[in-house]
Design a binder for these strands. Structure first.
Lengths: 168, 168
DNA sequence: TATTGTTATACTCTATAACTATA
DNA sequence: TATAGTTATAGAGTATAACAATA
């Protein structure tokens, strides 16, 4: 990979340490950009979930997990999937149960545990939210071509796999 | 790009609607993976900043902006860069000023405004934090090759540029 | 003794809106 | 009238730790 002629003047000023430093900073720049992208999307999604459905992102995420697991999920499974501690899951499930969107069913095999399900109402409500939510996200990410989106998805998956080993 | 023979049996079951649906879901999957990656890194960085330096991510981010702008930044510039509203910037700057890490200097051109700077102590403190912080991030992202990191950086930049137009 | 889940608490972060001082 | 910044408030989100019930 020869450097283009136009940057040759720069290379004179680019000693080994500078190269090493800029190499180190690459990870930092990725992290900062990752944070910015996430925050931008998150802010849009949070505010629209509030305006349109009077709900929050953690509540939406919890319902999304339940929708993906029709057999139901235990509290500690939700805790792990949502990456939050148990007390917070209790709070959110309490709210959603009060509104009739989810229900705690007894787990026959373990009398300490529950299986959390979407109710029929919860399924319908979530379907409405998910449809709009997806439109917002498609709009926000439509700056990338399909191929670029696939590549981004692959790179994020790989980054995630490694990070989860470093910080389990 | 011909599909490999091994997936040919799958293609029989892949009608147009399935393709269209999975295409729609691509943006959603990116968003969810983006959120997971960010949360994983964020959790590590937050907890280590707290353990090692008794500080928080927003405080670190604010100091990082000041370090990048030695000429100082006005409150509303910090607000825009950090993507938070003004009242919150005041709170964080108050804390950091009380600890002697930043200072408000009068802006001669506009007596309503300040320029916020890192103090000498703030510079040293930030340098220590930044060095460790970068090690954490390099470790977390070391699952990607240099070329993959460059590609990720590029894709995130492109996504960000478009998203900022959709949701300014 | 370990695990599942709940309760109670405290703190950080954030947005909103009313306010002042200056432009 | 508009802008820079502050103050006050309320709510979301989170972690922690002590606790009860069951394994």
């Amino acid at each position: 990979m020869a450097a283009p002629a136009v940057v040759r003047t720069d290379r004179v000023r680019t000693d080994r340490e500078t190269i090493a430093r800029s190499d180190d900073h690459r990870a930092l720049r990725i992290w900062l950009r990752l944070l910015t992208c996430t925050q931008m999307i998150e802010r849009v999604v949070r505010s629209r979930l509030r305006e349109r459905f009077s709900t929050t992102l953690p509540r939406f995420d919890l319902m999304a997990q339940l929708e993906r697991h029709p057999e139901g999920l235990k509290m500690n499974e939700l805790s792990r999937l949502l990456m939050v501690t148990g007390g917070n899951v209790t709070t959110i499930v309490d709210q959603l149960e009060k509104e009739g969107l989810v229900e705690r069913l007894d787990e026959p095999a373990d009398r300490r545990a529950f299986r959390i399900h979407l109710t029929r109402t919860g399924e319908r409500t979530f379907a409405d939210m998910a449809r709009e939510h997806e439109e917002w996200v498609v709009g926000l990410l439509s700056g990338l071509s399909r191929r670029e989106q696939d590549e981004l998805l692959r790179l994020l998956a790989k980054a995630k796999e490694h990070a989860v080993e470093v910080a389990p």
